[in-house]
Design a protein around this nucleic acid. Sequence first.
DNA 1: ACCTGAACACCGTTCAAGT
DNA 2: ACCTGAACACCGTTCAAGT
Lengths: 212, 212
Amino acid sequence: MRAEAVGALEPRKTPVQTRSAVTVKSICEATIQVLLSHGAERLTTTRVADRAGVSVGTLYQYFPNKRALLFAVLKDHLGKVTQAVEEACERARGKALGEMMREMVEAFVDAKMVRADISMGLYKVAADVGGTALVKRESLRMRKAVMRMLETAPDVERAPEEVAVQMMQAAVGGAMRSVLEGTTVSVPVRDVRGHLVVLCQSYMAAVMRGRV
Amino acid sequence: MRAEAVGALEPRKTPVQTRSAVTVKSICEATIQVLLSHGAERLTTTRVADRAGVSVGTLYQYFPNKRALLFAVLKDHLGKVTQAVEEACERARGKALGEMMREMVEAFVDAKMVRADISMGLYKVAADVGGTALVKRESLRMRKAVMRMLETAPDVERAPEEVAVQMMQAAVGGAMRSVLEGTTVSVPVRDVRGHLVVLCQSYMAAVMRGRV
DNA sequence: ACCTGAACACCGTTCAAGT
DNA sequence: ACCTGAACACCGTTCAAGT
């Protein structure tokens, strides 16, 4: 298997003046706007620069390449989702297993849904941009939060294997993706939430019963 | 939301002579080879043509554009997976619900795994290529097969809502994707299969019990 | 009926010149 | 310290010319 030829993805220079901090922010915002209005395949560095009111050269002063730009935007978006899940896990400490699953899943689904349009747009670019590495990192953060939460469940004697939690996350994440991409026939958000809650509850319960 | 600007994705002309049938096949094979050896971002129509031993012009005689080429390859691959699942559903008719889930999930996982490298490579291009439309079609075919199977389960009184089956598919598909992309920490295939079987069994059982 | 490959348009990226 | 935009390289796609 090939190693991903990613190249530098980190921002090129850190803005030291207020002017450039504004520039960077406007470039990121312009990226999202272009993504949503023109679509991923028409997202051009020139177009982004235009929209941000700067020249291409300026864009490249802060981002080494197009991927890095999209990477930054993706990172920001995924970070918000992870944070929402972490907070939910914190809130649910000490509750029963079923409640925990509900809080976690609802936080995840809702975080993805607040900016459903951005989530959708970013799925398309994630693959081109080293998104999997990012998803991997965020998954790990979420998994740790979930594991910590599970340790405090009164109705759980010993924590489940980490594989089980991984599968659960991957399943919920995949289902959300499918809904957002419209692969799934359109279903009300409320139903999706409800179904994913049940899915996690029943799977976790089965795992605890040693069904695997 | 923007409509996907797909353009023609169907092959441009149907080979009428043996020579050109060979050409088309070799172009498709070359595509997979280039995808696996050079990676998605270095997959160039010129490179594919070179590898297939023809000129770019010839490639464009059969495929209107690069996307159509990748679309064809993706379609073929997904078709095989769907077929495997359909066959499994056929075999499992009349068995108990738990057995049905096992047969279905194992068929799906195994089909994805036979050519894990191709599955992986194609995930990267799917987004650029109108893959979601294709996935939607294949999902529908699989869902119908699953619904037909479920009707014959002796321990199921009334078939589950279609939403539930959709969620299950999306969850399993997403989990497999996560495993293949390496987002999930590497887990033995056998374990993945086992976990996904339990996930489907417990979720379906919960749905039947009216837990949603 | 099928194949070739030079030519064109477009996009990512750079860098010399400006403030 | 930051910005500009013409110039370059590369890739998708075409089409006049060949067999």
